[in-house]
Design a protein around this nucleic acid. Structure first.
Length: 202
DNA sequence: AGCACGATTAACT
DNA sequence: GTTAATCGTGCTC
């Protein structure tokens, strides 16, 4: 039985959580019991009101309220008129921060993913933050959900640990109009999926 | 009340 | 490399 990641894991510095979430398994247990899941291979950290790339730069608003709440909750928001993005709230309650999950390697519920991602090739099912939400069936219903609750249907499990040499960092994506140093600071974490144990992919 | 813009993607050229 | 699709949010008037 895989071990679910406890809340204390998320109640730490956001950069640490973002790095250590690489290799974790994101699981959506659907209403019929089907597990749709994948191993996280890319994340980004968004840290506090000072971070001009973080939504909380505007302060506490209805949209960002969840980021100010306790760690281990889902911050799910809608953008570009059609895409959902999934984040996990980090740090202590009262400090607004979160980790955006940007990419997964699919491992379970492949037929569900195929059904949701349509005719797209498998390689592109979960290689983007909005794509993985679509593939796993994550949308605004999960905004604010406690992913550490025992009965949670959306949660994280410890699965794999990537060695340091398989992890690289880079500036965060899509912050074109954000001022420096936030625009270039390397708070994006990328794991080499080739370092993952072989899956039954084809 | 109105508006510019975005933590994106897919389909173009 | 460029662009349309599409709408909630936060800011301005």
């Amino acid at each position: 039985m895989p071990e679910r990641i406890p809340r204390e894991f998320f109640a730490r510095p956001t950069l640490t959580v973002a790095r250590e979430l690489l290799g974790a398994r994101l699981v959506h247990q659907e209403a019929d019991g089907t597990r749709v899941a994948g191993i996280i291979v890319e994340t980004e950290a968004y840290v506090g009101e000072e971070d001009q790339g973080c939504h909380a730069r505007a302060g506490r608003t209805p949209r960002t309220e969840v980021m100010y709440g306790p760690p281990g909750h889902a911050y799910v928001y809608f953008t570009y008129g059609m895409h959902w993005l999934f984040n996990v709230v980090t740090e202590q309650e009262g400090f607004p921060a979160a980790v955006l999950v940007r990419a997964l390697v699919p491992t379970e519920g492949l037929e569900r993913m195929a059904a949701r991602r349509g005719k797209q090739p498998r390689k592109t099912w979960t290689n983007g933050p909005a794509k993985l939400c679509q593939a796993l069936g994550i949308d605004g219903r999960y905004h604010g959900a406690d992913i550490c609750a025992p009965q949670a249907s959306l949660f994280l499990e410890f699965a794999h640990v990537f060695p340091a040499e398989s992890v690289t960092t880079a500036p965060r994506v899509g912050l074109n109009t954000v001022p420096e140093p936030w625009k270039s600071i390397p708070w994006r974490f990328i794991a080499d999926p080739r370092r993952l144990p072989q899956t039954n992919s084809r």
